[in-house]
Simulated scan of single mutants.
Amino acid sequence: MEKIHKVGIFFGVLFTALGVVLLARIDVNYFWITLLLLFGFLFEFGVLGKGAGRFIPAGIFIVIGVVLLLCSVFGYDKMSYLWPMFVFAPGFGLFQAYLASKKRNLLRAASILLIISAVFFVGIFFKIGWARVLFGFILVGLGISILVKSFGRKSE
């Protein structure tokens, strides 16, 4: 019975949103963005999906929906500044899943994606030419630390 209720909520919200878009004569681009946000919030509030894993698609859909909404309002030329959000989106979803489950591997994966997107944002917004060099040093340091840990482990 609970599944039927959630399916009813899903289609009720979907048809209501579609009807509002048609009645308000909203541009079709906004409709697709609204659908992305709708799916994101349905995952976020547990209508679609169960457990901590539902937060990963929720975060991805919501962040990408917001980015596309900003581009629709202010122009798609802003995508040249906002593209790191596509790296940020899964990191945000993984971080939400970590907060719900407290699994450390989710935090590691989220941290890596969030740091990479932050480095890209620094390089874009401040037009720093050395961002590539900084990112290179970060990757070399990460690689060396992984190698040191790998050689430091005793084989079983």
Rank of each mutant, 00 (worst) to 15 (best):
K127F: 06
L134A: 09
V122S: 04
N105F: 13
L107Q: 09
L114D: 08
A118Q: 09
G136T: 04
V87D: 04
V119I: 14
L106N: 06
S117T: 03
F121E: 12
S117D: 06
K127Q: 15
N105W: 12
L107A: 07
F125M: 03
I138Y: 03
R132S: 03
A131W: 01
L106P: 01
A110L: 07
I138F: 10
I116H: 11
L107T: 12
F86I: 00
P84M: 02
F121Y: 14
K103N: 11
L106K: 03
L139E: 11
L107P: 09
F135L: 13
V122K: 01
R108L: 15
F121M: 03
L113C: 04
P90A: 03
F125Q: 08
K103W: 15
V122G: 11
A97G: 10
L94P: 06
F137E: 05
F135S: 05
S101C: 06
N105S: 11
A131K: 01
Y98L: 05
F121Q: 10
F120V: 07
G93Y: 10
I124W: 03
Q96I: 02
A118G: 11
I112W: 08
I128Q: 13
L113N: 06
K102E: 15
V119W: 04
I124Q: 00
R104L: 11
R104H: 14
L94E: 07
G136V: 00
R104N: 13
F88D: 02
F126L: 13
V119E: 13
S111H: 03
S111P: 00
I128K: 11
I128F: 14
F92E: 08
L134S: 06
L113Y: 09
A89Y: 03
G91R: 04
R132F: 13
P84Q: 04
I116M: 06
A110Y: 06
R108K: 13
Q96H: 06
G91E: 02
V119K: 00
I116T: 15
S111R: 03
F121S: 08
V87C: 05
Y98P: 03
I124T: 04
G129H: 11
